[in-house]
């Protein structure tokens, strides 16, 4: 995966020089380890800043919303599915985009690395299947597979579903992954257990809306939490309000979420926000055979009606 960067730079440079795009959206090195940040590269001389490693977990589709330029965008499997959803939902047109596809083997979870290191992490070096973590006076080698983001560990769409250029041949998709073990656990709980589980899950929430801001699906000009007439949700940290926010946001993502993990990744309090969206992702798959963002020709399942849609839940 580390070898991709040369190809990424080569393609980006070409696209900019040939004026096929006005800008490239990719990643550059962040100021602290494991925190690569999205960047807009507008000139060929800046192409050198682009990086690619296992710290590029942020979903770049989020940066395409309502842009007017011609854009070259670097897309992992999940990003590409969100780009598809963006195209369907009129957030950007296909013609504006040159999609530079990146076959992905999963991104690492900085919290897992920090926990494994058990000290302040000052430098992280990445090799093929391992990462070397350096801190004050220590150096530790960790298997990448042990510190993958939870969503990456169970990802079954690592290759972009839509692209114009590919930086490498496709990677092997993971087979036989149990995607919904965690959801089933919650489903099996009694109402009391569920209540306690979600109460516990949300107790650290400070309503900073980082999850919403990181999510490519959350592009409404005015989010419902910010509306005042009617005021759907109170603005306090009252548990009812917090719960309402998370529930409704999950519903807004139902049938559209690609489980890219941006929400969980962005949460400063370490809440597993995916716990909400995943249940609905599972329902969309099991009830409607639907996976979001797989084709630009089909609208999300909840936007459409088919005579054979399941209706057992009505009874």
């Amino acid at each position: 995966m580390l070898a991709y960067i040369n190809k990424i730079k080569e393609i980006s440079d070409r696209l900019l020089k040939e004026q096929k795009v006005d800008l490239i959206i990719g990643f550059r090195k962040g100021t602290i380890p494991m925190m690569n940040e999205p960047c807009f590269v507008k000139t060929s001389s800046d192409v050198k800043n682009l990086v690619w490693d296992s710290n590029c977990g942020i979903n770049l589709a989020n940066y395409l919303t309502n842009r007017k330029e011609k854009i070259g965008v670097i897309a992992k499997g999940c990003d590409s599915r969100n780009i598809v959803t963006h195209i369907i939902e009129n957030k950007i047109s296909r013609e504006q985009l040159v999609i530079i596809g990146v076959p992905c083997k999963g991104m690492i979870d900085r919290r897992k690395v920090a926990a494994a290191a058990d000290c302040e992490v000052t430098e992280v070096l990445e090799q093929a299947d391992v990462i070397v973590v350096k801190g004050p006076g220590i150096e530790k080698t960790i298997k990448k597979a042990d510190v993958l983001q939870d969503n990456c560990a169970i990802c079954i769409h690592r290759n972009p579903v839509i692209n114009d250029e590919m930086v490498a041949g496709p990677v092997e998709e993971q087979k036989g992954v149990d995607r919904y073990e965690d959801v089933r656990k919650v489903e099996a709980m009694s109402p009391e257990e569920k209540w306690n589980y979600f109460e516990e899950l949300l107790s650290p929430c400070i309503r900073c809306y980082a999850c919403r801001n990181a999510c490519p699906l959350c592009y409404c000009p005015t989010c419902f939490v910010d509306e005042s007439k009617p005021q759907w949700v109170g603005k306090t940290l009252d548990t009812i309000d917090t719960r309402t926010f998370h529930f409704l946001r999950a519903y807004h993502c139902a049938g559209r979420c690609t489980d890219c993990g941006s929400c969980t990744r962005a949460c400063p309090m370490g809440i597993d926000v995916r716990a909400f969206t995943k249940k609905l992702e599972k329902d969309a798959l099991e009830l409607f055979g639907w996976e979001a963002g797989m084709s630009v020709d089909e609208r999300p399942t909840l936007d459409t009606f088919k005579p054979d849609d399941p209706d057992k839940f009505i009874k």
């Binding site: 419902f224 309402t244 519903y251």
Partner: peptide
């Protein structure tokens, strides 16, 4: 709307 259900419950 799910919001109505939530509002009634709360």
């Amino acid at each position: 709307s799910p919001k109505f259900a939530l509002a009634a419950l709360r």
